[in-house]
């Protein structure tokens, strides 16, 4: 085996000897050329004025080469910074962007923990028919609105979005309006609108969605009347209030 290897090595030496010579020659030529270039660059570098002229003359080429690299770097930097800002807004840790900071500034009332976070406070839950916009049931901590009208207008706005923008109904969506937020969770023939104030906390959001899901599972039998009969509505409303009471009080 070793004698075979030796034979191959000898054969390679014989066959490549010419190439090896060429390689050494090219190498020497390049080295000489390179040393000349280095000498010239060194002299330019030693002379700032000459170097400056060289750079100015090659501005377009430099931009061509560095532009995409710089662009990627800047884009990445901006993305990272935006992500950081989003995280701060989500967690409510940036006091200047928190509504409660400004509230405490004007009202003089301070948050006990020192950290300025607006907890999500559920104000009203509406169960609305997708097609007609008729209110099926509601639960309110305080009577903040004429729920029938709100349900109608809210559905009209959804119809507008679907008609004009050809937007499809999404399962969960969030509408942000001033201090209030409306979380929408759509089912086949009806949807929930959770009206709340404070930070859009994902945990809170998930709790609402889960509670809505369990309500639907338990009460699907009551949700198929085209025209809502008050007696049916009363049963549904009772169930609704019982089901969502705990969620609102948390």
């Amino acid at each position: 085996m070793s004698s075979e290897n030796q034979a191959f090595d000898e054969l390679r030496e014989i066959l490549l000897s010419k190439d090896k010579e060429d390689l050494y020659r090219v190498n020497d030529e390049l080295r000489t050329q390179l040393l000349g270039e280095i000498g010239s660059i060194r002299s330019e570098l030693d002379d700032p004025e000459l170097f400056s002229q060289k750079i100015s003359g090659a501005r377009n080429q430099i931009v061509d080469i560095l532009g995409p690299v710089m662009g990627r770097m800047i884009k990445k930097y901006i993305q990272v910074e935006i992500e950081k800002i989003n995280q701060k807004l989500q967690s409510g840790t940036d006091k200047f962007t928190s509504a409660s900071y400004w509230k405490s500034l004007f009202t003089g009332k301070k948050n006990g923990s020192g950290t300025v976070v607006d907890p999500a406070v559920l104000l009203e839950i509406l169960l609305i028919r997708n097609d007609s916009g008729l209110l099926l049931a509601k639960y309110s901590k305080e009577e903040i609105s004429d729920a029938d009208m709100i349900a109608g207008m809210f559905t009209a706005i959804r119809s507008f979005m679907e008609t004009v923008l050809e937007a499809r109904k999404s399962e969960v969506g969030l509408i942000d309006y001033g201090d209030y937020k409306i979380l929408v969770q759509s089912f086949g023939t009806f949807y929930f609108a959770f009206i709340f104030s404070g930070t859009n906390d994902p945990e809170f959001k998930q709790r609402m969605v889960d509670t809505a899901n369990t309500f639907v599972e338990r009460n699907k039998l009551h949700m198929h009347n085209h025209v809502i009969d008050k007696s049916t509505e009363t049963i549904l409303e009772k169930e609704f209030v019982n089901h969502f009471k705990n969620l609102c009080e948390k």
């Binding site: 007609s132 008729l134 009969d229 008050k230 007696s231």
Partner: peptide, 8 residues
């Protein structure tokens, strides 16, 4: 009395 809610 029966109460019904409808969309017109």
């Amino acid at each position: 009395m029966r109460k019904i809610i409808s969309k017109v």
